[in-house]
Design a protein around this nucleic acid. Structure first.
Lengths: 347, 347
DNA sequence: AGAACGATTGACAGCGCTGCCGCATCCCCT
DNA sequence: AGGGGATGCGGCAGCGCTGTCAATCGTTCT
């Protein structure tokens, strides 16, 4: 363990390595045109002195910050249960920030407010962000995306509804993996599989519906629009849609929900109606929020790789070790088979 | 709306106000020894130019950052459902930071790791924090508190187990409000009221047990240690304790849990045992996590003012408008009466 | 061999702000 | 009236780093 007395400056490193402070700066910033041997020598000095560049000084001198902002819609503002969603993204973003010596600024905001766009504008102005990650559903809102774009600040969208050229983004394979959920249900013997759609403004969620259709098609099942209900991502809407679907004379044997909150609402409603899950009704969700494992029965769902998506998003902003930046990443989701889906009721 | 062209520096403000740049600096930093009239004149210039001091420059010149770190145990690391807890604290902390022109650095960490202390040490060294907020349960861990204290960085603990002189902290009235929950239960006719204790390392949670005893005493009920179970804050431990308590011949008519997760476990277990809540068993929790409103029945619980606690903590670090810093704040919690408690079974 | 050119490195002037010090003033007391 | 100590303000030298530009070195080309 090295003694950590006083601050080590770039000057100390330069002396130790026998080069100018500018050269050290070049190495730190991975600039080109430094001889390999020099680079290594400097790196050794950095390591042995445990040198950590002073962010404030870098920011001041370079006239830009090393801050990455993670902007997300704030569920606590109106009490949605998706805080796990945010935590996971924060974690991923934090991982990537540490890897590239950036700092993470979290910026929750309420997308229903009219002035979100100007709020972001001043965030960018005040802090001279070096990059911004826009999480869904904000990443789908034209007004907001355009406001950010107008500032020329590099940004990456997470789960944008539409992939647009020149707008870097990271997505998950919502559609494909949703169709796999249908596969799973069909394997259990289900044919009358209902679907509860999510909030139409959250376009990525729309892909899940398409995946549902894909899955049905793959198994030669004709879609029945009476088995499709319109939710809005909330627990309450899950309850509402479940009532509607379950009160039909020929009710579905399985309900696939576009997100877990709605699936929770469905399970609650089924319980209240005395319909047993999964023996009489299979229910599945999407997201794998923490609640999913706390439901009784535990929810079969699809895990979104939120952490890795956020991590990828930040990396796209900072560039990888070679300074390359991709403009599109797709991180696959995965089925989490649990208790809420089961073989179709033999009755 | 003023045009936001280019950056406004302290120099511009000084010119506009007809004073030296140093005087502007004094006003910005709320330093004393500036005539009131001068202060106002400068303030007007600041406002009209929409001047925002450059944080990096301030940090560099003053050799300290304007960063406040919020350090919390990271539930996502091992999948606890308390992410709502964190989100609310983040929000509160963010509010206070904005009010005092600070920036918030979030730092999740896993308290079970041996090296948390050194992790915090390097966090402090690397970023030159101006202050640190330590959330429970980290705020209760001697090893960690001492490590932070050794760095001389100002810090505030949230919900520390013990209040220690010279260690600023913010608490909620756990004990008092817990006794009110007992009042509520007694009013509903309960006398055999059980209690499930929380994790012993989380000392604030211990106060809830004392409050439970206070409440019993107030109503002349003799505590029965067979009605007290030892949980560890987890959902599973709630299930375990519930089984134990409910399998007694004279089972309790109400169970008060030291946190919501355990209460959720109790409700789940009651459901499985065919015991109806609240008609046969009242259940109450503590925290008011988001899950509380999603349980069926919705959980009667106590809402911890986490947001306001975190806000208070940050304010204690930054000082209020007059530069005063308190060293102790108590923010009251409040009963949330919902569906899981009801009149005692007349049977 | 000499010119031309890219690769590599260093010198130096700030980035926008604060800390320290010095110079006026002003007030109160003897 | 004069000394001593607040009070109010400005000047100046950096904080630790990066951008710019110029200097040096090594190679390739004619």
């Amino acid at each position: 363990m090295t003694v950590q007395s006083g601050k080590v400056t770039i000057f100390d490193v330069a002396q130790h390595a026998g080069v100018s402070i500018k050269t050290v700066s070049r190495v730190i910033n991975r600039e080109p045109n430094v001889r390999q041997t020099t680079r290594e020598r400097v790196q050794r000095a950095v390591d042995s002195l445990q040198y950590r560049p002073d962010q404030s000084a870098r920011n001041l001198a370079s006239q830009k910050s090393h801050l990455i902002a993670l902007v997300y819609d704030d569920p606590a503002a109106y009490e949605l249960p998706s805080s796990g969603y945010i935590i996971r993204m924060q974690q991923g973003a934090l991982r990537a920030c540490r890897a590239s010596m950036k700092e993470l600024l979290i910026h929750p905001c309420d997308f229903r407010q009219r002035n979100v766009a100007s709020e972001l504008r001043s965030l960018i102005n005040d802090t001279r962000l070096s990059g911004l990650v826009l999480a869904a559903p904000l990443s789908n809102m034209q007004r907001i995306v355009r406001a950010v774009q107008a500032t020329k600040t590099p940004f990456v969208r997470i789960s944008p509804g539409k992939v647009v050229r020149g707008q870097p983004c990271v997505v998950t394979n919502d559609r494909e993996v949703s169709s796999h959920m249908v596969d799973h249900l069909v394997e259990l013997g289900h044919r009358r599989i209902a679907f509860i759609k999510g909030d139409p403004t959250h376009e990525a969620v729309g892909h899940r519906y398409l995946g549902y259709l894909d899955g049905l098609a793959r198994h030669g099942i004709t879609p029945d629009e009476r088995l499709v209900a319109d939710g809005n991502n909330s627990f309450d809407s899950g309850q509402r849609c479940a009532k509607k679907l379950l009160n039909r004379k020929r009710r579905p044997t399985a309900i696939f929900c576009a997100n877990d909150d709605m699936a929770a609402g469905v399970i609650r409603t089924a319980n209240r109606l005395g319909i047993s899950v999964p023996s009489e009704l299979s229910v599945s969700g999407f997201d794998d929020i923490i609640l999913a494992r706390q439901l009784d029965p535990m929810l079969t769902t699809i895990r979104q790789p939120l952490g890795r998506m956020a991590e990828a998003a930040v990396s796209m902003l900072t560039g990888n070790a070679n300074g390359e930046r991709s403009v599109f990443e797709s991180v696959p989701g995965s089925l989490q088979l649990r208790e809420s889906t089961g073989p179709v009721d033999p009755r």
